[in-house]
Write a protein that binds this DNA or RNA. Structure first.
Lengths: 152, 152
DNA sequence: TATTGTTATACTCTATAACTATA
DNA sequence: TATAGTTATAGAGTATAACAATA
């Protein structure tokens, strides 16, 4: 058939995302994290006393999957959980001191990563890229799918 | 800590890619395929008598993983394999008639998908987006990592 | 010995369903 | 009854290592 036309946008989008993402994951792995656990720590940093369910929603994974990752974080000593005294069904997740230190280190690396991207693109292209991505996200997001931080 | 600055580019890139990709996978799933098998069919359409190893390289997966997917395609009747008479170690993969028909249908849908993206962006923004993606891919591709069509 | 591909096996991420404990 | 979270289990996609067949 030899179907050849312009390269599909989706192909470029996929390729770039995964080339970039691979580098980002290498950085996270050097700190003992992966994408899901990093998103969890980000959510914990930004939310005020979230329940696990809140965190799962924010990260875009199921409760069961969150339990799995939180257990890993807890085993690694980055996080610790206590039952909420006001509602003992609720687990309160908090960063440990070690977790806060790790978060700060990774956050620095993540910011450096972002600066590298912005530097290579330049301010105008960066703005154009972000605008285009936003347009596509709006176009392809389904009303039902509320995934603030998208899943894999 | 409440670390808040501009939204990282990587986050937008990740989110958009996966919102778009989710829709694309829905389309593929309606035809009984997934991303890996679609990339395999694309490679078969474009390459001339590739070995399985060639296809694995092009898709960016291991030989063992390719075997796994090719078996699924074969079970689905889209592909069939014969040993190369000139070198009986080599499997020649070919689309069946049914495979060619399925490929044509999916290809039509994929082109429609691409038109939808280009339409919502407009020609200038499309060009700007592709340029930015290309810049990022170049910046973050490691010399060793040759992944023409990227893996998950 | 080197290469092509397969098999056996296992790991990670994910989900659903059934469950516990609380409310 | 309803909710928060856990456990048990499974499936998809991936990989590595050992292997068979062929060169």
């Amino acid at each position: 058939m030899k179907t050849r036309g312009a390269r599909p946008i989706g192909m470029s989008l996929w390729e770039t995302t995964h080339v970039v993402h691979r580098e980002f994951e290498r950085m996270l792995a050097a700190h003992g994290l992966n994408r899901a656990t990093w998103f969890i720590l980000l959510t914990l940093d930004e939310a005020v006393h979230p329940t696990q369910r809140d965190v799962a929603r924010a990260v875009g994974i199921s409760d069961a999957t969150l339990t799995h990752h939180v257990r890993n974080l807890e085993d690694g000593g980055l996080v610790h959980r206590t039952r909420d005294p006001d509602d003992r069904r609720v687990q309160c997740i908090e960063l440990t001191d070690e977790g806060r230190a790790a978060f700060a280190r990774i956050h620095d690396d993540a910011m450096a990563f972002d600066r590298r991207m912005r530097a290579v693109l330049g301010p105008e292209t960066t703005a154009a890229l972000l605008g285009a991505l936003d347009t596509l996200t709006t176009e392809f997001t389904r009303p039902g799918d509320s995934t603030p931080i998208p899943r894999a």
